[in-house]
């Protein structure tokens, strides 16, 4: 059972918007935070309100505060974004799955290829194939957003076979990929973030990760299960 069982289409849609907003934020980079923050705030606040979770609300308030900031502040956030994720310095939290999950801690590891194979199951490939690692955070987020959109579409079409297929794909991808590294990644970010925006962003990633972890009961607020998840992901090396 995951969060989207019996979830009204509107909430599912908001989930997809959140995934896409995060995907865009990482893909468009620190230079475009003035465009990518607002959609994130919007979808995030919808999710936070729906689940009524204070941590997420608090984090989102910080995001909201910085989504309407001045150019100077945007620059500061951009520099911090690049220090954390891009470079040219050795980035603190490289946004690629295999850096966290492969024993090599390199890019283009086994996870990268597994993710590539996963995309291929949906006849998809990355636009930057063989240049940009397939397990770049934005690509993975875009892929799950896509799967979610398929769930909504197939639900609307009442195609139960397809609904099940996409639900399974969605769960598998979280369990095999995003769910395994997103928290470690978020933790790495929160450990060294020098700007509140990124601590808040880290909170959102943790929330998202927890939300998407398999639940035992649909009523349980996701935070209850956070420690359990955290134990599991702590078996992974934190950079």
């Amino acid at each position: 059972m995951t969060f989207f069982e019996d979830c009204p289409p509107q909430v599912l849609k908001t989930h997809g918007e959140l995934l896409l907003a995060l995907s865009h934020l990482f893909a468009q980079g620190g230079e475009n935070l003035s465009q990518t923050l607002s959609p994130l705030v919007k979808s995030c606040s919808a999710i936070a309100e729906h689940y009524n979770t204070s941590r997420l609300l608090q984090a989102n308030q910080i995001l909201a505060q910085y989504s309407e900031t001045n150019d100077g502040e945007y620059l500061v956030m951009c520099y911090e974004f690049n220090r954390l994720f891009v470079g040219p310095n050795a980035p603190v939290a490289p946004p690629y799955e295999s850096v966290y999950l492969s024993s090599d801690h390199l890019v283009m590891g086994e996870q990268t290829l597994a993710v590539r194979k996963f995309y291929q199951r949906e006849n998809l490939q990355t636009i930057g194939q063989r240049h940009e690692p397939d397990d770049f955070i934005s690509t993975e987020l875009e892929f799950v957003a896509y799967l979610l959109s398929r769930i909504i579409e197939t639900q609307a079409a009442k195609n139960s076979a397809k609904i099940q297929l996409y639900k399974t794909l969605y769960q598998e991808f979280w369990q095999q990929h995003l769910g395994l590294w997103l928290k470690t990644f978020a933790h790495t970010v929160s450990q060294s973030a020098k700007h509140p925006l990124f601590s808040a962003l880290s909170e959102i990633l943790v929330a998202l990760s927890t939300l998407n972890a398999p639940l035992n009961t649909k009523e349980a607020p996701y935070e209850t299960y956070a420690p359990q998840i955290s134990r599991r992901s702590s078996s992974r090396c934190c950079l």
Partner: peptide, 22 residues
């Protein structure tokens, strides 16, 4: 992604040229 006939707007992913590549 034409083959799946979805209205999803991809930014980073695109149709894989080889069908059933997986």
């Amino acid at each position: 992604a034409a083959s799946s006939m979805t209205l999803f707007n991809f930014n980073l992913l695109t149709n894989s040229p080889s069908a059933s590549a997986a």
